[in-house]
């Protein structure tokens, strides 16, 4: 069991009662410092200025914003170090449909209601995983890609790495892509797709092809790479309006027929700029 008393928690929720409930549960797992963010902008501001160790973010943030949008903004603009834990909190069963269909996912998500014991179990699991990848994260951040790959290759066959098989394969493909070895990246993603239809691997193939300038030849314009039959049902009252459409974010609307859009925006909605790797 990890010690959470020295970790800085950030609870993001627009509902005051729900914020208090999350803080109470976090305190039961040992949290001492629990900060609040009451809306989207406030949360981004706090994370940019002083990144917390553990973020508990509600999926419904009000004003048409969702926790998933926030997560994607944080990830795309490198505001979230690999070591930070991002846990999505939701009363929605359908959030798991989102997680299974998008490229950028939280470290984990937890469905309300849940006990402090359950949160502890989930957090301990993420801490163990981040510890397993700690050496790799370091090399990746220094852009020492050969070292990062060597660590992944070694962990691939280790007994301790067995539960993280897919994550190792994914990170390996990411490193190929980041280091500019786009052919190797494409092969790595396709290899994964031979076994499982992961949306992040599909997106990875598209990214590799895009970097090779072969995208147009291989992906017919009208073909979405997400299965068209998936449906998302969200409560009508709290359905986020499509205030901010983004590539790969299924808008929480009924039918999802997302097609690949322009992949990277140059500025984000909150006016932040990418942070250089630390």
């Amino acid at each position: 069991m990890a010690d959470y008393s020295k970790k800085r928690f950030l609870v993001i929720d627009d509902q005051p009662q729900a914020r208090d409930a999350l803080r109470t549960i976090a305190q039961q797992v040992g949290a001492f410092a629990v900060e609040f963010a009451t809306n989207y902008q406030d949360a981004i501001f706090r994370i940019r200025n002083n990144t917390p160790d553990i973020i508990l973010c509600d999926y419904m943030l009000g004003e048409g914003r969702s926790g998933q949008q926030m997560l994607e903004e944080l990830r795309r603009f490198s505001l979230l170090p690999d070591e930070t834990i991002f846990m999505m909190v939701t009363g929605e069963q359908s959030y798991e449909q989102v997680v299974s269909a998008v490229e950028l996912i939280p470290d984990d998500y937890i469905i309300k209601p849940f006990s402090p014991d359950k949160l502890l179990l989930r957090l301990d699991r993420i801490v163990a995983k981040k510890l397993f990848f700690a050496g790799y994260y370091k090399e990746k951040r220094k852009q020492e890609y050969a070292n990062a790959l060597a660590i992944l290759e070694a962990s691939r066959d280790s007994e301790a790495g067995r539960p993280y098989r897919f994550e190792i394969l994914r990170q390996r493909a990411e490193v190929f892509l980041a280091s500019g070895d786009v052919q190797a990246a494409e092969a790595a993603y396709r290899n994964i797709l031979d076994n499982y239809e992961f949306p992040w691997a599909r997106a990875g193939v598209a990214r590799s092809l895009h970097k090779q300038n072969r995208l147009r030849r291989h992906v017919p314009k009208s073909t979405g790479w997400l299965p068209a039959h998936r449906t998302f049902s969200m409560p009508a009252t709290s359905r986020p309006a499509s205030a901010w459409p983004r590539a790969n974010t299924p808008k929480p609307s009924r039918s999802l027929t997302t097609s690949p859009k322009k992949r990277r925006a140059t500025t984000c909605a909150s006016g932040c700029s990418p942070r250089p790797p630390r």
Partner: peptide, 25 residues
């Protein structure tokens, strides 16, 4: 109908979470 049901379930689960956090406290 689905939206109404899903919304009701969502709100109820949020309320149950508040109740559970009070018990935990």
């Amino acid at each position: 109908l689905l939206d109404i049901l899903a919304s009701g379930v969502h709100d109820a689960k949020n309320q149950l979470f508040i109740a559970e956090s009070m018990i935990a406290a």
